[in-house]
Simulated assay, not measured.
Amino acid sequence: MLDDVDRRLLRHFQADPTLTTAELAELCRISTSVCWRRIEKMQEAGIIQDQEAIIDWAALGYAVEVSLRVTLDKTQPRAFDEFMGVAREVPEVIEIQTFLGRVDVRLSVLAKDMAHYQQLYRDRILTLPHIADIEALMHIARVKSDEVLPL
């Protein structure tokens, strides 16, 4: 169970994951050793999983983002596993989510431009196994992108 100090650590860590243990300790008004032990404990418990770099794909020339909602042919016993295995191999697919309901899978796909997307769609996406239905949603704007939780 998290106490107030743990929540304070997580709040500051979420706001700036580049802070050193000493800086976090100072912000949370605890010793560096206590801070380090608490962070280690939260990592071991799986509360803090990783730190990652956020890349601006548009700055690297990827101007098209599409969300594909895929319904799989559920009459095939291995449809889900086979689809996932092949979809993971497409480098332009940057995220795969699964759902319960009419839509089984959502793929986030990046492309440099519409011609690149069209080629990718024809050559890599439509050849994925066991697709019963697919719907493309063209990304227009990112209104909110945040994984920070209120702690």
Rank of each mutant, 00 (worst) to 15 (best):
E135P: 00
L27K: 15
M42F: 00
L10H: 04
P129Q: 08
D123F: 04
R122G: 01
V66N: 09
Y117K: 01
G46C: 06
R69L: 12
E52D: 01
E44K: 15
M114L: 09
I47L: 14
L72D: 02
E89K: 15
I94N: 10
D104W: 00
V93E: 03
I39D: 07
V148M: 02
V90D: 01
F80D: 06
G46V: 02
C28K: 06
E44W: 02
A111Q: 12
E52Y: 13
I131V: 14
P150T: 10
G61H: 07
A79V: 10
D50G: 03
R11N: 06
D123L: 10
P91H: 14
L110T: 11
S145Y: 03
R38P: 03
A53G: 03
W36Q: 13
I131K: 06
R124K: 14
E92Y: 05
V109Y: 04
D113L: 09
P129Y: 07
Q14H: 09
V93W: 07
W36P: 00
L24T: 12
P91I: 14
R88L: 14
V86T: 08
T18E: 11
M1P: 02
I47A: 10
L72V: 08
W36Y: 08
I131G: 10
T32G: 00
R122P: 01
Y117I: 03
V64N: 07
E135K: 14
Q118C: 00
L149A: 05
Q51S: 07
I94E: 11
G85T: 11
L2E: 08
M84Y: 04
H116E: 09
P77W: 01
A132H: 12
A15D: 11
P17F: 02
E44M: 10
L149V: 08
E135L: 10
Q14W: 06
Q43Y: 01
R8N: 14
R29N: 08
C28G: 12
I94L: 09
Q49E: 12
I39P: 02
I94Y: 10
V86R: 15
R7G: 08
A79K: 10
V34R: 06
Q14T: 03
I39H: 04
H130V: 13
A132Y: 11
T18P: 02
I96D: 04
T18M: 08
K41C: 05
A141N: 14
M42V: 00
R122T: 12
R124C: 09
K74I: 00
T75F: 08
G85E: 09
S67N: 06
L9A: 07
L24H: 05
R106H: 05
C28A: 15
S33I: 11
L126H: 11
M114V: 08
Y121D: 08
A79S: 15
V70A: 02
L9N: 04
A15K: 13
